[in-house]
């Protein structure tokens, strides 16, 4: 139930960000606000009928710890962009691509997705797939250095901290 209320609040915040019609002293805007609330309630009702309001569908329990994770990730993205930009413009194109397998010990599917997307956004690596038989991520790395950087597992530790395991 708490998760449903938080989904309702999140949906209404999203609606408010898109419309901005929140001055309820004006009749037209008050009418639109009521319509927005009704739409949000309808969406929450449909979503709970579909049974998708769970740890994966609305991961609000990660919100607090994400405050520490997202700025670090953003900084990594900035670094990776300068690194890739250098390799694109460099006349001799200093790349040595390879495919590596990275062990994945995150517990939930959601954490695996966050880990895989973070790898894609950070320096010189793109996640191609998950080998669920051996629980490994298949990663394409642009250079040997970036491949080694992923294999040290620093990011995996941070994702597990986000997940609340370590």
């Amino acid at each position: 139930m708490a998760r449903r209320v938080s989904l309702l609040i999140a949906l209404f915040a999203f609606w408010a960000m898109l419309s901005g019609q929140l001055d309820i002293t004006v009749f037209g805007q008050a009418f639109l606000t009521v319509c927005g609330v009704i739409s949000c309630l309808f969406v929450v009702w449909i979503a709970s009928r579909m049974g998708i309001i769970d740890m994966e569908g609305h991961p609000v329990h990660l919100a607090l710890r994400a405050i520490a994770y997202v700025p670090w990730l953003f900084w990594q993205i900035v670094l990776s962009n300068f690194d890739v930009a250098m390799r694109v413009w460099h006349p001799s194109r200093p790349i040595a691509p390879r495919i590596i397998r990275v062990p994945n010990t995150t517990r939930s599917d959601l954490a695996t997705v966050i880990y895989a997307n973070s790898i894609t956004l950070t320096p010189g690596t793109v996640t191609i797939g998950v080998d669920s038989a051996t629980n490994e991520l298949i990663v394409h790395a642009l250079t040997k250095e970036t491949a080694d950087a992923v294999l040290t597992g620093d990011m995996e530790r941070r994702v597990k901290r986000l997940e609340g395991v370590a």
Partner: peptide, 26 residues
């Protein structure tokens, strides 16, 4: 522009993913 040049210059499909996916984000 770097993303666009990277998509043109990189030697194969997988290395083209890097400029396309990252530089556009920033």
């Amino acid at each position: 522009l770097t993303g666009a040049v990277g998509i043109v210059r990189m030697p194969d499909f997988f290395s083209r993913l890097h400029p396309a996916g990252k530089n556009d984000t920033l």
